[in-house]
């Protein structure tokens, strides 16, 4: 059982749907500790991605091509810090997934590349109340699941569940990176919006693989 181009397209469409569904929630989370534009920006970005997918004349040749389309579109349309961060994550993931189908190790390589891109761009580490706090446990869980011989869908499910726990772990944290760090101690007690959107997107990936 591997994950192919159809899965990648379904992942993108499910990501767009879940971001749209949670738009208000992301806006509210970001309003509490940021500038309140995360839900709006991400929704605009993924809506544009779906528009580009719909306009394609021929289907992408491999998983990486789908992810590269997401990368370039988010980069151009999201703005703020989330555009470059997600854009780089999808671009690195695209390079790691330039194959027609992903097996479990391929899924791990894709997630690791995405995390690597976010860390390279954002210069953040865990515990700083950023999306890295969701991506890191997600990637570690994917590695562990793949090492135990899990199928790609189960690797993604493990990653998504770990992302949920990782996102929740940001609630008590005091932000030391990103916009929320301007608030210092007052940032504690709020869920980080970037970690929350990461969780949503990884769940979309897992659901598309079911």
């Amino acid at each position: 059982m591997t994950l192919d181009v159809a899965w990648a397209i379904d992942w993108v469409r499910r990501s767009a749907a879940t971001v749209k569904e949670h738009r208000e929630e992301l806006i509210e989370l970001d309003r509490q500790i940021g500038d309140g534009d995360h839900g709006e920006n991400l929704n605009r970005g993924f809506t544009a991605v779906v528009g580009k997918l719909d306009a394609l004349e021929s289907p992408p040749g491999d998983v990486g091509e789908v992810l590269k389309l997401v990368a370039t579109t988010l980069m151009s349309t999201v703005g703020g810090a989330a555009g470059p961060l997600y854009g780089t994550a999808y671009l690195r993931a695209a390079k790691a997934a330039a194959v027609p189908e992903l097996d479990a190790n391929g899924v791990v390589a894709m997630l690791e590349a995405a995390l690597e891109g976010i860390v390279a761009r954002g210069k953040a580490t865990t515990g700083e109340k950023t999306m890295v706090d969701a991506w890191t446990p997600a990637t570690e869980a994917a590695v562990a699941a793949a090492d135990e011989g899990a199928a790609p869908a189960a690797v993604l499910a493990a990653a998504a569940d770990a992302a949920t726990r990782g996102a929740e772990s940001t609630i008590p944290l005091v932000a030391t990176k990103g916009r929320a760090s301007y608030l210092g101690e007052r940032s504690a007690g709020h869920l980080d919006p970037g970690a929350r959107s990461t969780e949503l997107i990884l769940h979309a990936a897992a659901e598309a693989a079911q």
Binding site: M75, A81, G87, L91, R121
Partner: peptide
Amino acid sequence: LGSAVLTTESVLEF
């Protein structure tokens, strides 16, 4: 500021 650097680094990567 901040995201100007991120945006530029991303452009360079592409």
